[in-house]
Write a protein that binds this DNA or RNA. Structure first.
Length: 426
RNA sequence: GGAGAGGUGGCAGAGUGGCCGAUUGCGGCGGUCUUGAAAACCGCUGUGCCGCAAGGUACCGGGGGUUCGAAUCCCUCCCUCUCCGCCA
């Protein structure tokens, strides 16, 4: 949700900025309904004020059986009905306006490059050299023992497609990656939380999954809970409808969770193996910061995610997403893509975003300025640090050795307890 | 899951139809006094919405209802606590 003041102070500037994104907005209807709604509120509140004043008089009558009193009551009844009608109208107009107002996406920052598609994204940085990966590398699903170590078929039996079992040392390797990611986050000042894996509708609405993306979440109809598509949802909602003291900012949190995504309609090419799953593990980094600091905090966040890939020794590139390719609530977004040498593809393993005040306004997260005074909306950011399966895919492909074993990066040894992954093929 | 008791401002805790956006205490902020501090005393101290402002309006767990008028009465949902049942 954007600041409504922008709508009134600089509508043309707002339209121009939003036009860089791929979303369409019904500006005329929004402006018209805003006028109507304010008029309706004024009418309803004026009538209500009148009713309250008159009602006060009624209460002060001494003789409740007098004709004057009865006449007054009768008159009040009409007024009461009028107030009810006006309030209902105001509520209705307000709801119509709000629905459209919420359809306005966040404003892309001036530093976001122009562009319409993913081809217009700008490579902001690269690290490592894809050419260092052996020319004989194969896609991870073609590694002879892959089906035993990550068992998709048994996953189908237990649940369905996209819910694999990780077996033996592979399970330990996944657990090592999670532990490593969390430890990196902790050392960078993020406090760990282990959040609920299901959220209510209010939480999903605050972070923007509802109402539009409900088809992407698994829904538990009995309790009306949603399986989280990312830890961002519960972790951000930790502070929903709360007010920080300015001195407490910035707040850094991290959380590991499995993530559940229906990925409805997105299955096709390039989604084999670990590339896209319905359930996957991820460590998420979340920040609540002062509005003046959010863009520099985004650079720090991106750096925190990058260092992890560097320590793992995996070549990657950083994309500065163009205006047409960033999401609805995003002001600025970087994607980190790791090189998967077997597939000869870049795989997205992290998305680091500044939501400015867009998400926080919707979630009611504020801060009280140091000198006191009116509370202001904080800025929120989040980024993956990192998503496990695609990191694992790149690691398996890039580090596969001639003898069929996989070299485990040194930073993981303390968590795995082994230095070489050597599952048996059947 | 069953029975009972509750949910009021940062906290504690009054208020059972109009005098209540809400007594009081604590906490917080400012001041008087003091060399300074404490104590004492005085004043201020919730949030959203509409409005340039004055001001208006909404909010006593959420939603709905009764009434001229609801924190207060009714319905419903959620949550907390106690006891029982079940159980990692």
């Amino acid at each position: 949700m954007i600041d409504i003041k922008l709508l009134r102070e600089d509508i043309e500037g707002l339209k121009t900025a939003i036009a860089r994104k791929k979303f369409t907005v019904e500006w005329d209807a929004i402006l018209r309904l805003d006028e109507e709604r304010r008029a309706a509120i004024l009418k309803a509140e004026t009538a209500r004020a009148e009713q309250k004043a008159a009602s006060k008089e009624v209460g002060q009558f001494k003789d409740k059986s007098s004709p004057e009193f009865q006449a007054k009551l009768a008159a009040m009844k009409g007024l009461s009905e009028e107030v009810k009608a006006l309030e209902a109208e105001a509520t209705e107009v307000e709801a119509q306006w709000k629905a459209l107002f919420l359809s306005i996406p966040n404003i892309p920052d001036a530093s976001v490059p122009a562009g319409r598609t993913e081809d217009d994204n700008v490579v902001a940085a690269t690290w490592g050299d894809p050419k260092t990966v052996s020319a004989s590398a194969v896609p991870h699903w073609d590694i002879p023992w892959f089906a035993q170590a990550i068992d998709f078929e048994r996953g189908v039996k237990a649940t369905g497609a996209g819910f694999p079992f990780y077996v033996g040392d592979m399970a330990r390797l996944v657990r090592a990656l999670i532990s490593f990611f969390l430890e990196e986050a902790r050392l960078n000042g993020y406090e760990e939380v282990l959040p609920p894996l299901m959220v209510n509708a209010a939480s999903a609405t605050a972070t923007g999954q509802l109402p539009d993306k409900e088809g992407q979440m698994y829904h538990m109809p009995v309790e009306d809970f949603y399986m989280i598509p990312t830890a961002e949802v519960p972790v951000t909602n930790f502070f929903r409808e709360e007010t920080f003291d300015e001195a407490d900012l910035p707040v850094y949190r991290c959380g590991y969770t499995p993530c559940f995504r229906r990925e409805a309609g997105s299955w096709g090419k390039h989604v084999r193996g670990l590339n896209r799953l319905h359930q996957f593990d991820k460590v998420e980094l979340v920040k609540w910061v002062h509005p003046d600091k959010s863009f520099e905090e985004l650079e720090l966040l991106r750096g925190n995610a990058e260092v992890i890939l560097q320590k793992l020794g995996l070549p990657y590139r950083v994309l500065l997403m163009c205006a047409g390719d960033i999401g609805f609530p995003h002001a600025k977004q970087y994607d980190l893509e790791v090189w998967a040498g077997g597939q000869q593809r870049w795989l997205e393993v992290s998305s680091c975003s500044n939501f400015t005040d867009f998400q926080a306004r919707r979630a009611g997260i504020r801060f009280r300025p140091k000198g006191g005074g009116k509370s202001e909306i904080v800025h929120t950011l989040n980024g993956s640090g990192l998503a496990v399966p695609r990191v694992l895919a790149a690691l398996l492909e890039n580090n596969l050795q001639a003898d069929g074993t996989v070299k485990v990066p040194e930073c993981l040894h303390r968590w795995t307890g082994f230095e070489t992954l050597a599952p048996k093929a059947k």
